[in-house]
Design a protein around this nucleic acid. Structure first.
Lengths: 221, 221
DNA sequence: ACTGCATTTAATGATTTTTTAATAAGTTCC
DNA sequence: GGAACTTATTAAAAAATCATTAAATGCAGT
């Protein structure tokens, strides 16, 4: 996985940025339009996306939304100062930050470093005695490794990422199985059970994954 | 309750909007004229209303006023650029925002997201020693967790959102059970009782949920 | 193709919420 | 005070939802 994916149609600017960022020690890949950006991201992923709003074809807004559908990788929006503010406020919601062109490369790098510090220091997701290694897809409980399956890992991660929030069964199902899946909601129930067997101290009276009657489940931690 | 109620007589436009908003993950309902809009709103409610000004029969201004009489749900007014400004300034007072036709769908979506974020970011609803966590769907009293059922939560939320206002029994019932429900009004009375058991200091003489004789109930806080 | 594991389905049992219905208690108004 | 009406209380039935189990299916690696 590369560190930074640059989505920018101006080749010159894109090349310059690549060089500067590589000089800073990041690995960089670049896409000149939205379609390429998406396919690159789907194939290789990225730890951070620099996204120009004015793109030929699919514009930056669409790219942002599409990527958000996949997952919530950090994004920094590159935008011309003339962009209408209300338009921006919307996009910035989905993004982590934005910067106006023409921008100071030092500020950009500072922002990038900031995001890397904030988000990527977290390659484990811990709560109490349960800890997820997001890279290795392993789970530990009280320091001891707990073998979980792929689906169980995804499920646990989704719950833990939304600690304290009640997630509807349909919502969870849509996220993990895809909302167009043929499978039954019941399947989720069963996976919840397996998970509880593995990570609850007393699976009979679960304290971490609590069920919210008529709604879904919630990670209490 | 649906997320967004579209009030627009142009079927084509209304359908397009529905599709786009649904694609964004909102639930959507639509009305082609003011009367339908009102009855839909009374029956099912909505978290946000998109309101066209030029409607057959009762115009958008009237719809806006009528709905404002019921409660203060966020509204975005859709208006033709040629609309007289003074007329607009009045309506925009009652609404949260307005947008001129022909409008950029991205801007509209940004506005919607903005409103949802601003209004719904308030994910706790507190009054005195009672506090609702809207995301987690939990209730605390004096910091201690009080387990409530889904219906109880909805009921409490409705009451607290309208602090100091007397809500008619039929109104409450319509909001939570749906006005076309088969159930009896008596059911509401029983739920009020369960709620009082859980959140009143002395359920025998309720101070938070007071009954307004012959009308309904009121949250005093 | 076989094996082992992950996933899904299906059936059953257990639990919780919601509703109903009957009765008691309280208000209003004459 | 008493009739008429409204709300509170209770207990129990009904409905809905979730947990559990076991067995079937799918799938990757050998």
């Amino acid at each position: 996985m590369t560190d930074i994916l640059i989505v920018e149609d101006n080749k010159e600017l894109s090349g310059l940025l690549s060089d500067l960022l590589r000089a800073e020690g990041f690995t960089v890949s670049a896409a000149a339009d939205g379609e390429k950006a998406l396919s690159l991201y789907e194939k290789y992923g990225a730890r951070l996306i620099l996204l120009d709003i004015n793109l030929p074809g699919m514009d930056g807004f669409a790219v942002c939304r599409k990527i958000r559908e996949i997952d919530n990788v950090p994004m920094i929006i590159l935008t011309a100062r003339t962009e209408r503010e209300d338009k921006l406020s919307g996009i910035v919601l989905g993004a982590d930050d934005y910067i106006e062109k023409p921008y100071d490369i030092d500020i950009l790098i500072a922002k990038i470093r900031g995001i890397f510090r904030r988000r990527l220091a977290i390659d484990t997701l811990s709560d109490g005695s349960i800890s997820l290694d997001l890279a290795g897809e392993t789970v530990t409980k009280d320091g001891r490794n707990v073998p979980v399956t792929a689906k169980e890992f995804e499920l646990l991660r989704l719950l833990m990422e939304n600690k304290g929030q009640t997630l509807g069964k349909e919502f969870i199902f849509g996220r993990i199985w895809g909302s167009d899946s043929e499978s039954e909601l019941q399947t989720l129930t069963v996976h919840i059970k397996w998970l509880r067997e593995k990570i609850e101290d007393d699976p009979k009276s679960p304290r971490r994954i609590v069920t919210v009657w008529g709604k879904g489940y919630r990670w209490e931690g």
